[in-house]
Amino acid sequence: MKKREDIKKTYKLYIGGKFPRTESGRYIKWTDPKKATTVNICRGSRKDFRNAVVAAREAFCGWSSRTAYNRSQILYRIGEMLEGRRSQFMDELILQGSSKKAAEKEINLSIDRLIYYAGWADKYQQIFSRVNPVALPYFNFSYPEPTGVVSAIAPNESSLIGLVSIVAPIIAGGNTVVVLASEENPLCSITFAEVLHTSDVSGGVVNILTGHRSELIEQFSSHMDVNAIVYCGNESEEIKLVQENAALNVKRPIVYSNENWHNKNTQDPYRILNTLEIKTTWHPVSI
């Protein structure tokens, strides 16, 4: 009997809750370390990024006005969905060169990290808010609000835990995000989009692109409708470019260098605070 031909997945982008191919029609051939499997990955263009920012901007109002409790539930739901797709991520992580044990560990850690930020999603606001003493008849208080649309360049080395560690604190804070997946190992990132797609995360809240970092970093950092950029990497030239371009519209640049995303110390509520803005309100009170 003839051997059955496997139906392979087409790896596409994730923009505005849809899975489009890149508008440029360009692809990158990705081959696994054993040279056994070749996959076509979308080589995202600046126009894909532009479309993703439009989607993220549209989604911002809805996502940021959800209750913190509801955002927390949805983050928890992402963790649940990831748990259910364990075997798919196992296969891809192993294909990308992980050992079975390492792959299992990475998936466990990713789920735990989502649950960790789900827990923080309705707590950071009271922790980071404060009442300020003022010498006037005002009740003066400061509290964090979401920054807006955040662009993010995910870590290259750890494709699943890296992506989760970047995306979770950004959306826990009520922001929407356009993230460039690991260039070396993009498989898990697009599969993670399928997890998001089935987790009540509205379209446009998280947008995932694949492509060349060197080609897209300029637009990721300069776009005027992006309010903060998270950069993960150690290239000093890239860091300089991100910081300079961020100055164009005073977007907040956040740089994570030399991080080991498998380490527990890369998760903390201050990473949520990084993409928040503090608002201070003066409320008149009678003396």
Partner: peptide, 9 residues
């Protein structure tokens, strides 16, 4: 300018 714009401005 080569830079994508925002309606804010």
């Amino acid at each position: 300018t080569g830079v994508y714009q925002s309606a804010n401005y």
